[in-house]
Design a protein around this nucleic acid. Structure first.
Lengths: 214, 214
DNA sequence: TAGATTGTTAATCGATTAACAATC
DNA sequence: TAGATTGTTAATCGATTAACAATC
């Protein structure tokens, strides 16, 4: 069976589709056309239809798309029907905030543990979980079938910790450390570089101001 | 003077260039060619030269680029030489974490205040700052020339709060609320939708597993 | 059936890569 | 000067938009 390669641009748009469809679902909207969704989301109807057709047709000619069905299909494409076991490595400000803030369980991500090298944090309770030491990490990962690690540690330690985690079976990293991980093929990384994002904002402000000048 | 429009793709790469150049600077590397940088960063040398040439030539033929000079020029393009006054709206887990975690001052972002609607947080000390009530926000923004607001509030309130802030002079939003802000022209928004990012990771895991199968 | 809207092909637009002349 | 490497043009590749036949 042919595995069609889907472009990054398409994938990046899927969560936004899901968000709008979720809101429509909540408002009990049953059907929607690519044209209506286009108005709502400020993208072209053509792009919407092209995007969905990457995965086969989800609509009906002359009718549009069933909101519930489309929502479920996109969720499936994103793999949100699967369950994953996740740990957070780094129980500093950001690690703790993510543990408390993200509704991991809602999307099938089971939050199983949190680790830090700082002894003064060990045993601290964070959302029903106690911070463990880095020494306990390897055996914990193996015993609990952890497949995702959230890295909220300083960039200096990140590459080494990622390596260590790959060796005990972690398949995916949600990387907040400000460095590139460079993991072996087959291991996936999604970077969230907050300071990069802030710089992009800075650029927009600068550019925007100079635009106003003429 | 012609304002050449720079593509989003180029802008998105600038912070990463800056990061690598910063590391080279720290290692006292004086010069680098597009080819060497290409090896280091895993992008094509051609792309590097094209990217830099969007802003005029920073290099010297036969020599390459001066690391320090290139670093400074990219920082300038990103507007990091300017100063901004910033507030955080929403002093929950994420708002507090960003206040403590982000090194705002380093890049010219002066962190001036933090606000929340939750009374029980008012007066709480967060990194030399006391959480203020939302009632105090408007006058504070005007009096302190705040131009950037970091939104770490739930999505329901975000659109209204953004509107309110635009009215008292805020020019830019770093938006962590899980919604589109839809601000007037001239106001800039940089979204950080963490759950979207996690969904992209989920997609990669799913797709990766099915790739292994054949 | 007639009308509406998808699925899909073709056209356009933009971004990346390749090639090479300019020049340090 | 010869060698190296940029700046820049041209070629290629990919993504978006437009158009329309298929069909519900």
């Amino acid at each position: 069976m042919e595995e069609k390669i889907i472009s990054q641009a398409v994938i990046a748009r899927l969560p936004r589709y899901l968000r709008y469809l979720g809101e429509l679902k909540d408002s009990n909207v049953e059907r929607i056309s690519s044209m209506e969704l286009s108005d709502l989301m400020n993208v072209t109807a053509s792009q919407i239809r092209q995007d969905f057709n990457n995965f086969g047709g989800f609509g009906q000619q002359g009718y549009g798309y069933k909101v519930n069905y489309l929502y479920d299909e996109i969720a499936k494409i994103l793999g949100l029907n699967k369950t994953h076991h996740l740990i957070i490595v780094g129980a500093g400000n950001l690690g703790q905030a993510l543990a408390n803030y993200m509704n991991f369980e809602r999307r099938g991500f089971h939050f199983k543990g949190i680790f830090d090298s700082d002894e003064s944090l060990h045993g601290k309770k964070i959302r029903d979980m106690y911070v463990q030491s880095m020494d306990e990490m390897e055996s914990f990962v193996k015993e609990n079938d952890i497949d995702i690690a959230v890295l909220t540690i300083p960039k200096n330690g990140a590459v080494k910790v990622a390596e260590q985690l790959v060796n005990c079976g972690v398949k995916a990293f949600w990387n907040f450390a400000h460095t590139d991980l460079n993991v072996p093929a087959g291991i996936v990384v999604e970077n969230v570089h907050l300071s990069d994002s802030l710089m992009k904002l800075s650029y927009k402000i600068t550019r925007n101001e100079s635009e106003i000048m003429h």
